[in-house]
Design a protein around this nucleic acid. Structure first.
Length: 110
DNA sequence: TGCATGACCAGAC
DNA sequence: CGTCTGGCCATGC
C-alpha cells in the first residue's frame, strides 16, 4: 500500500541528480507536509527499494544517517562514493556544495 | 480511538 | 562542544 505521502517522498528523492545529496528536512519542507520524522519513516520502510536513490538522503549535519536497504549504512556510503561523493567517517564532505536544494531548481522534474 | 516509535532536527544545558 | 529533551507527523498494534 503506497500512500500519497510516500509518493511525494518518492518523487522528491527521484529528482536528486547524481553526485548530489539532500536532507530529510529539505524533503519535508519541499513536500510541505509532515515532519522530518514522517519522511524518515516513509523512506525507512523502503517501499521503493533500489528503485529510488534514497542513499542520496543524509542528515542536516552532513552525516550519512541510516540505511535500511541491503548493506546498511556501509553500502549507502559505498553508493555515494561511487557517485563522486566524498565521505569520511560517516560524514559527507563538501556537503554544502553538493547539497540539492529543492528551492534552487527549475522544477523541471515536476 | 489512543499510545508508542522512527533512515530526524534544532534548541537548551 | 557533547548530550539530553521536546517536537514534528505518519504508521502500526
Amino acid at each position: 500500500m503506497i500512500t500519497e505521502f510516500q509518493e511525494k517522498v518518492y518523487r522528491a528523492i527521484s529528482m536528486i541528480p547524481e553526485g548530489r545529496v539532500t536532507t530529510y528536512g529539505a524533503i519535508a519542507s519541499y513536500i510541505g507536509t509532515g515532519g522530518v520524522r514522517a519522511v524518515g519513516r516513509a523512506v525507512g520502510k523502503n517501499p521503493y527499494a533500489p528503485e529510488v536513490p534514497c542513499h542520496r538522503v543524509v542528515y542536516s549535519d552532513a552525516r550519512v544517517g541510516n540505511y535500511s536497504a541491503q548493506g546498511g549504512v556501509r553500502e549507502k556510503i559505498r553508493l555515494l562514493e561511487s557517485e563522486k561523493v566524498k565521505i569520511e567517517d560517516g560524514v559527507v564532505l563538501d556537503f554544502e556544495k553538493i547539497f540539492f536544494d529543492y528551492g534552487s531548481t527549475d522544477m523541471v522534474a515536476e
